[in-house]
Amino acid sequence: MSETYDFLFKFLVIGSAGTGKSCLLHQFIENKFKQDSNHTIGVEFGSRVVNVGGKTVKLQIWDTAGQERFRSVTRSYYRGAAGALLVYDITSRETYNALTNWLTDARTLASPNIVIILCGNKKDLDADREVTFLEASRFAQENELMFLETSALTGENVEEGFLKCARTILNKIDSGELDPERMGSGIQYGDASLRQLRQPRGSTAQNKQQCSC
């Protein structure tokens, strides 16, 4: 009937207008670049089931409009997100400068333990680069973010971005740092995790040991 999965994570894609948020989502879900797509009005939604470290995880991804003006609308979707892709455009310093604002929003409005990955998108436009890799990775480090440069056009690192974020959340669940049962964690058990309850507990404990190394 419906897809089975171990976990369901709520994700956000946030960042300034025109950084390629919808294209990243589209590339991740459809595996191709979205040509001639209009800018997002309001919010859009996509989902995909992925396999991470032996677990199936359904990602429910909310793609939001980027303009400051609509933050009052898009903010209402932040609540209870477990992960976020924070996107800027490597060819636009302006979108990079706005990151702190987006970060504050995400950390205050979504789940407090939200796992965020910084994505410097439009990696393919290296000739027009305005933000260096080094600078952004330093920012990521200072703000406890994971970091990748991506290209929604070529697909480079797009899958990795989403998966890396999902993997980190899974590790945090395993280590007990994240509690899926806490309200607003943005995490939900799927049907498949119920099967897992029937397995001997030892195997789970072993997994844990591996993950936290």
Partner: peptide, 14 residues
């Protein structure tokens, strides 16, 4: 926890 599990408490405590 079963035996394998019991060897892991230090890891679990995080």
């Amino acid at each position: 926890l079963e035996d394998e599990g019991r060897s892991a408490p230090a890891v679990l405590y995080s």
